[in-house]
Design a protein around this nucleic acid. Structure first.
Lengths: 227, 227
DNA sequence: GGTGTTATGGACCGATTCGTCAACAAGAGA
DNA sequence: TCTCTTGTTGACGAATCGGTCCATAACACC
């Protein structure tokens, strides 16, 4: 019983995300936001409230996307759990290495810029990492059941370590660490995980990459991950 | 043969660092900077140029401090190299855990906010991580010579992994991960490093913390690290 | 004391900031 | 077609931004 909206909310949020993502929160102007989304400022404010609320919408959606993507990547049967973990770690390294614009990850960027002064952002990012940690824990437990990871190891602590390595890869990638080094970190992290004595799933098709010439690496073409 | 400055440049840079550190670059106003440093805007611009140049000064000094601190922590005889590595990793976790204000690390924050659009910041942060990696490599090589770390492992790759874990701890700390978990990540990372079969230096005074109840941890009071 | 040089402080400037508002447009129901 | 509700637009406003400028101050040297 009123005039319908002329824009698609998801599309606008996507455009807003791009802008916040590349410029950061403080450096993004609402005029630029209006230009990027194609909306007038009135529509923008009418639909999303102020700048902070718009960022929260964008940030929440981004976190949800990450959680969904990672959960989907790590879900599956026990006998492929270790392979999924390897694939995920490699995918993060590959996508970070592929980010030649060094835009990094909005989750990391937003957390770094705002978590100190914005409790909502801090809570959301903390919750996101918690969920990622749980997904990794579940996968590691599956790998333990299947005999790929030492069942005596604490799966939660391994998951925390893997998550830290992943975030470290992201941080180093933003600093400009070269692609080979990023991929090598992923391989090293995987090779250092405590394996079952009778593990059947290899980390990759080669010898343990930690020992021997460090330059040879698997080609491993992975789908880009938005993390 | 002219009027001398009334301020101490290092003190002003410290105050400027505090401000950039807690608010970020874009959200810091030069009026607030003048207030925080006690200088008039004329003096501020006369002494340091514009906002960007001032940030570069602050950022460079911060990176230099980190490099100096870490280098000092990791220097020493071979027989204590592994102990120094453990102490350093624990110190970073402890200082991140102690950062209840979640201000994080200016290197990480500045890199996240600016490296995409400021080549100088990107180069400086990349160089800083490179130096840290080399310091870790040298220390790990020493630990290998002394027989604490598997001499067959590639020390550079282990150093990259440790560096990634350290940056991951920082990132997770800023997201609000609790102190126990941060310390546990440090312990887990140390415990998965490939040890020499006849290693003499224990990672700590307990059994391997990765196996068994994950809640018990060493007290380990470390001096705060500015990282 | 005079002079030359640099430091200081804050008034000031044009540009830009976030957010508002009023005039107008587009549909749904009567 | 008229009304009512909501969406759209960009001009607008008050505040703030980074940066400049100038009157004044403080020294070193003569």
């Amino acid at each position: 019983m009123a005039r319908p909206r002329e824009f698609d909310e998801d599309e606008v949020l996507r455009a807003a995300s791009e802008l916040f993502w590349s410029a950061g929160y403080a450096a993004t102007t609402m005029d630029a936001m209006a230009a990027a989304t194609g909306l007038g400022k009135g529509s923008l404010y009418g639909a999303f409230g102020d700048k902070r609320r718009l960022f929260h919408r964008v940030f929440d959606a981004y976190c949800a996307d990450i959680v969904n993507g990672v959960s989907r990547q790590l879900e599956g049967p026990d006998d492929e759990a270790f392979g999924r973990l390897c694939a995920h770690v490699r995918a993060v390294a590959a996508s970070t290495a592929a980010d030649t614009a060094r835009r990094g990850c909005l989750l990391a960027k937003g957390t770094a810029e705002l978590s100190e002064h914005d409790a909502d952002v801090a809570a959301r990012s903390r919750q996101t990492f918690q969920i990622l940690q749980e997904a990794l824990t579940v996968d590691i437990q599956a790998a333990q059941r299947h005999g790929d990871i030492d069942p005596a190891a604490d799966p939660r602590r391994l998951a925390d370590l893997v998550l830290a390595v992943l975030r470290g890869i992201e941080a180093l990638g933003k600093a400009g660490t070269d692609q080979e080094a990023l991929r090598a970190i992923a391989e090293t992290a995987l090779s250092v995980l405590p394996r079952s004595p009778d593990a059947t799933t290899p980390a990759n098709g080669q010898e343990s990459p930690l020992i021997g010439p460090g330059s040879s690496r698997a080609p491993s073409p992975h789908p880009p991950s938005s993390l």
